[in-house]
């Protein structure tokens, strides 16, 4: 793609806006509600508490203003996953990819405009709200607000960068999956996969009595670091590294993820619209993932039911390996049957 084709096509961009304006508006309104509006109401309560003579008005409003709350970060992630999943999955569900790709647009252009609009909405939503919130901050001189304007912009920037990655990642998954629901669920699974699988590994290490605080702490640290959405849930993760370095890495990973999505989309035969997986060549990877994860989840539970040796006094490693292989095998077969059943249906 050269610099000329990087310029957006107005018609295609208009089509994207027109087709998804309801969802985009909801997203924008929600972000405004949890940031600007919440800040406004919290400031009012804060001022009222001060006027009422509260010595510690922060006790009225809470320790942090609402837009710093971790669960909101999780919800932002979910909303952006849904936005990307819908932007692409909707075209499949409506059957309009057939229309779009019969027009003089390349697959690259089609995906590029979706990516561009998604990023635009994320940047605009947080940018506008950061501006409004800065205005609110400056509009309340003398009120001892427990954060600075710089914190607002740091919050907005962190959300933009992290959610841009979440968006690009969901677009990537959307090139593999043939349904909106499949896009969304697979994206959430893979986005939180590093911390999830780390938790499973740690649980299994505990089961096998590998008590090493350093190993466990390092594993959990790596797992958390690889779970990008956690950066907006717990800002300390990203703030424990040089921010410029972290943002550069994140932006490069986002662009790389987008390029991979373009590569796969150009090669998508579009034959399995309506199926969770569109590339049958990748099925083994998904089956393996399910088999390994479920083996790690189920074996500790099974060992509680049918213990090998005496619990805590020493498990039989050889028998344990068989447990993992059997559990993995069962889930491999189950997923295979599920895919076949879905395909027949």
């Amino acid at each position: 793609m050269n610099s000329v084709t990087l310029l957006p096509n107005k018609t295609l961009l208009w089509k994207e806006c027109r087709n998804g304006w309801v969802f985009f508006s909801l997203l924008f309104v929600y972000i405004t509600f949890v940031s600007s509006y919440t800040m406004l109401t919290e400031l009012s309560r804060y001022k009222s508490a001060l006027a009422d003579g509260w010595i510690y008005p922060i006790m009225v409003t809470g320790d942090l203003l609402a837009f710093h709350k971790p669960e909101l970060g999780l919800f932002f992630t979910l909303l952006v996953v849904v936005m990307a999943a819908v932007m692409i999955g909707q075209e499949r569900d409506q059957g309009t990819f057939g229309l779009l790709l019969a027009m003089p647009y390349s697959r690259r252009e089609v995906l590029y405009h979706k990516f561009l609009l998604g990023l635009g909405i994320i940047v605009a939503a947080f940018g506008v709200n950061a501006l409004v919130m800065s205005g609110l901050y400056w509009g309340h001189p003398g009120v001892p607000i427990p954060f600075e304007v710089a914190d607002i912009w740091a919050w907005a920037l962190r959300n933009m960068v992290v959610l841009a990655f979440v968006f690009a990642f969901t677009v990537l998954i959307s090139t593999l999956s043939g349904t909106s629901v499949g896009n969304g669920i697979l994206s959430m699974i893979f986005l939180f996969f590093p911390i999830g699988v780390t938790g499973l590994i740690v649980a299994n290490l505990e089961l096998w009595q590998v008590h090493n605080y350093e190993i466990t702490a390092n594993l959990l640290h790596i797992g958390t670091l690889l779970t990008v959405p956690s950066y907006i849930i717990d800002r300390n993760i990203i703030h424990s590294y040089p921010l410029a370095y972290m943002y550069t890495v994140l932006i490069l990973i986002t662009l790389g993820t987008y390029q991979l999505a373009q590569y796969l989309f150009a090669r998508n035969p579009m034959e399995h619209n309506g199926e969770v997986l569109m590339f049958s060549g990748f099925e083994w990877f998904f089956k393996l993932g399910v088999a390994v994860c479920f083996a790690l989840l189920v074996v500790p539970i099974a060992l509680l039911v049918v213990p090998i040796g005496t619990y805590r006094s020493g498990l039989e490693p050889a028998v344990g390996v068989i447990y993992y292989l059997v559990a993995g095998g069962i889930f491999w077969v189950l997923v295979t049957l599920l895919i076949k059943w879905r395909r027949k249906a």
Partner: peptide
Amino acid sequence: ADYQNYYPGFSVNDMVRFYRGT
């Protein structure tokens, strides 16, 4: 196409605008 799929929320005017620009 045999069964035409256009954007469900688009009106005739919207589709005309899309085609005209494309």
